[in-house]
Amino acid sequence: MSEWRFRPARDHGLTLAERVQSYDRERGLGSLITSGAWRLLCRLYLRVVHRLSITGMEHLPPPPFVMVANHSSHLDALTLASSLPWSSGRKAFALAAGDTFFTSTPASVFAAYAVNALPVWRKKTKPQDLDDMRRRLTDDGGVLILFPEGTRTRDGTMARFRPGVGSLVAGRPIPVVPCWIEGAFAAWPATAKFPRPGPLRLIIGEPLLFTETAQDRAGMVAIAEACEAAVRGLAPKR
């Protein structure tokens, strides 16, 4: 017979306000149902209003993995999360700017329960936070949705990838799935308050593995460059 394997939730004893902002957050039934319904709603919206088409679904590995993409719109994270099949979609989590999405408890509850977002506080990320994130990937078998540019593009061109993504996957068997989102900048740029109807396309590339890459600065930079090149390579030729 196996050892007793049940443990209390990592976030046990936190109040709701603390819990929704905590990196120790673990999802229960309520959160799964809420986010499942939210993803379904997003999928419906994207299909109907933005006529979203997806290619490369067959490239998605089983969790855990990291999804990286170009970032030009609030539609990006919704597009990636809602395109995942249920088995990996329910394990998806995204990073969201704390000062935009976690400004109040109701906003944080929405971000946590519907989107399963974790707050990032600009310039305040500690090494411990990266460890927690890595644990969410490996121990929980999660799917991290990440935009390595760090912020939405203001002019439609893709910026350089920051090396942070490398520290999560260097020397570990966690694949990185490069994705290209086309049309999101036209539909909902950072300067607009609301989205406009317009076609969206999601292209999912083949996963990259960095099991042999060194866990140092040079390795991280190399991974960021490789991911960036892979994402750029998916962009439709103009």
């Binding site: 443990r7 209390p8 039934l29």
Partner: peptide, 21 residues
Amino acid sequence: LREYDRATGLFRDVVVAATVA
């Protein structure tokens, strides 16, 4: 049930937790 699930860790077994609910 929610509290019990989170305290014992049963919430990680979604199928069992959902069946009890």
